[in-house]
Design a binder for these strands. Structure first.
Length: 360
DNA sequence: TGCATTTGACCCGG
DNA sequence: CCGGGTCAAATGCA
């Protein structure tokens, strides 16, 4: 089994295991009087997400976005060969079986990309409701008049499609009934690392596209995007942890997109922040023992989120330990030794995106 | 000059 | 065949 397949296999097992674990938790919630609707909804969302991720892995079988080490050499370039000089028929004949296969795979992958729709209301006085940027860099690649729609639909793709093989797209459609409302359909999640929550740019595509046509995900959608980035890219490994001498231990915090699991770059000093990991709008700055003599860990988020807290659900693969971290910094309630990975991320309700919505 | 947007043509699934 | 989605040359803009 090669590195990528192994990675996918592990991810698949991890997703399914999480699904089981969350289902168990949900069952307990049903029997608990203290359980809130929000908690149950959260668990349902996690379960659905596990299924979605598992299906994506199965559908993409050995493909690209979630397992960057196995990137096909020129998936993007292959697609651009679809249409050349308006002579598709001759191109079709010339196209090799291999290219055909690649095209079919890309088509399948596109279809299997998760999509979700967001409605954004724009008020004339206050301008945008919600954040003024969705944290990603988009490039417009088309506009179409849609049948029986008053307004044209605009199509955007991630600016870093070619540089980082990021296939996230979105299209934006002004509502017929209420011109202040825009329907935004996102397809695919970002696996690029350029997202930021910087101040709104006067030249952002949305601003230019329509005076007040804003394209912003809810906090929950942003959470899911960030989470998918983290899931795809991060892994925390504490195999080296010396329980008797935590202060001396190192962490591995591996950006799996770049390295796989080579020993050369596995180990970071405690609190080391890899620059590669900054850019998703969230900088995990990061996991470290709370005191030199304990195996309890703290997770802190960075100022990139302007101090707004997040909730992290740190899942421990061996002991089923699940801890909720809230606010900017929190500590685990029990020792963590061994492999663990982030499996949930949620914005603080105070994060200025309005009410969180659930990923569908 | 380099990069983003515009826009007409093409692709392709239903 | 229709219509939504995408491409890519032309154009705009900083």
């Amino acid at each position: 089994m090669d590195c990528a397949s192994n990675w996918e296999y592990k991810t698949l097992i991890n997703e399914l295991t999480q699904g089981i674990e969350h289902t168990k938790q949900l069952r307990e919630h049903f029997h608990s009087t203290a359980s809130t609707f929000e908690n149950q909804e959260l668990l349902l969302q996690k379960i659905l997400s596990s299924y979605e991720q598992s299906l994506l892995i199965l559908n993409w079988g050995g493909s690209t976005v979630q397992s960057p080490p196995a990137l096909p050499p020129s998936a993007g370039a292959i697609e651009y060969s679809v249409s050349v000089n308006g002579s598709p028929k001759s191109d079709d004949k010339k196209r090799s079986d291999q290219d055909q296969h690649a095209l079919i795979n890309i088509s399948k992958k596109r279809k299997s990309q998760p999509t979700w729709t967001e409605q954004v209301k724009v008020s004339a006085e206050s301008g945008f409701e919600g954040p003024t940027d969705d944290g990603y860099s988009w490039r417009k690649y088309g506009q179409k008049d849609i049948l029986r729609a008053k307004y044209p639909r605009s199509y955007y793709r991630c600016t870093y499609r070619h540089m980082q093989n990021c296939w996230a797209t979105k299209h934006v459609q002004r509502s017929d009934d209420d011109p202040t409302v825009f329907d935004i359909t996102y397809r695919g999640s970002h696996n690029c690392h350029h997202a930021t929550y910087s101040a709104p740019q006067p030249t952002s595509p949305e601003k230019q596209e329509f005076e007040n046509q804003a394209v912003y995900p809810t906090g929950q959608q942003y959470s899911n995007q960030v989470l998918m980035n983290l899931r795809a890219n991060l892994r925390v490994n504490t195999n080296d942890l010396d329980e008797n001498d935590p202060a001396a231990c190192h962490f591995s915090f591996v950006p799996t997109f770049s390295s796989g699991m080579t020993d050369d770059n596995r180990h970071f000093q405690i609190s080391h922040v890899d620059d590669n990991l900054i850019g998703s709008g969230y900088s995990p700055s990061f996991v470290s023992p709370t005191t030199p003599e304990s195996n309890y860990f703290s997770v802190s988020t960075s100022s990139q989120m302007n101090g707004y807290g997040m909730v992290h659900n740190l899942h421990h693969s061996e002991s089923d330990l699940t801890d909720i971290f809230s606010a900017n910094t929190s500590t685990t309630s029990s020792p963590i030794v061994g492999d663990f990975s982030l499996d949930h991320l949620e914005l603080d309700p105070n994060f200025p995106f309005g009410n969180p919505k659930f990923f569908s």
